[in-house]
C-alpha cells in the first residue's frame, strides 16, 4: 500500500500535524500494522521535497516544534491519479483496494467508478490467463488456474463492496 498517497488523501480534509496523521491512519487503515513515527516523518519530508505538501504552521507550546502540514494542488492531483489508476491485478490486494475505496468516500470521489475500473482490469488479466491456459500444457493450465481463482475471489469482493458502498460511506464518512 502507498503510505504517501494515503497520508496525502487524509490531508485533503484539512491541515494536520504528523501525530494527528499517524493516529487517523492507524484508526482507519492500520489495524494490523500501525505506522511508526519515523515512517510518518520520513514520508512527510519526501512529500514536502516533492511539493505535494507544504508546512502550514509550526507550533511548539513549550515542547518540541510540531509542523502542521497542508496538501498542495499538486498533492491533490497526485491523489486523484492514484485513486483513478487500477492496481495491477494480483492476489492479496485487499488492503490497498480497501484503502482506496475508503479514501474515495472520505474525499467525495466516486468509489463506484474506482471499483468498476478495478473490475475491468481484473477481467482483462483473467482473459489473458484464460487464453494462456487454452494454448498451454497441463502445467500452464494449473498455474493459470491458481491465479484465476485468486482473481475471481478479488472480483467477488469488488462486487460485494460495490453493493455495500452506501453502508460503508455511512461508517467511514458519517
Amino acid at each position: 500500500m502507498s503510505i504517501g498517497h494515503t497520508l496525502l488523501g487524509l490531508l485533503e480534509s484539512g491541515p494536520r500535524h504528523g501525530y494527528d496523521l499517524k493516529r487517523t491512519f492507524d484508526e482507519k487503515f492500520g489495524q494490523d500494522r500501525p505506522l511508526h513515527y519515523g515512517q510518518v516523518y520520513s514520508t512527510m519530508s519526501r512529500l514536502l521535497k516533492n511539493g505535494l505538501v507544504e508546512v502550514d504552521g509550526v507550533e511548539s507550546e513549550g515542547g518540541p516544534e510540531r509542523k502542521r502540514y497542508a496538501i498542495t494542488d499538486a498533492g491533490i492531483t497526485d491523489v486523484t491519479q492514484w485513486l483513478a489508476q487500477p492496481e495491477k491485478p494480483e492476489p492479496y490486494l485487499q488492503s490497498t483496494l480497501y484503502t482506496k475505496v475508503v479514501l474515495a468516500l472520505l474525499t467525495d470521489r466516486s468509489a463506484a467508478d474506482l471499483l468498476d475500473a478495478q473490475r475491468s482490469a481484473h477481467l482483462r488479466m483473467m482473459r489473458i490467463l484464460t487464453d494462456r491456459k487454452r494454448k498451454g500444457d497441463l502445467a500452464d493450465q494449473l498455474i493459470c488456474d491458481h491465479a484465476l481463482f485468486h482473481l475471481e475471489a478479488d472480483l467477488r469482493w469488488l462486487e460485494l463492496t460495490a453493493a455495500r458502498l452506501d453502508q460503508l460511506a455511512k461508517v467511514v464518512a458519517p
Binding site: S120, M126, L148, E152
Partner: peptide
C-alpha cells in the same frame, strides 16, 4: 468471471 474470461470484451 471465469466464464466471462472466455470473451473478447465484457
Amino acid at each position: 468471471a471465469r466464464v466471462a474470461a472466455y470473451s473478447d470484451r465484457d
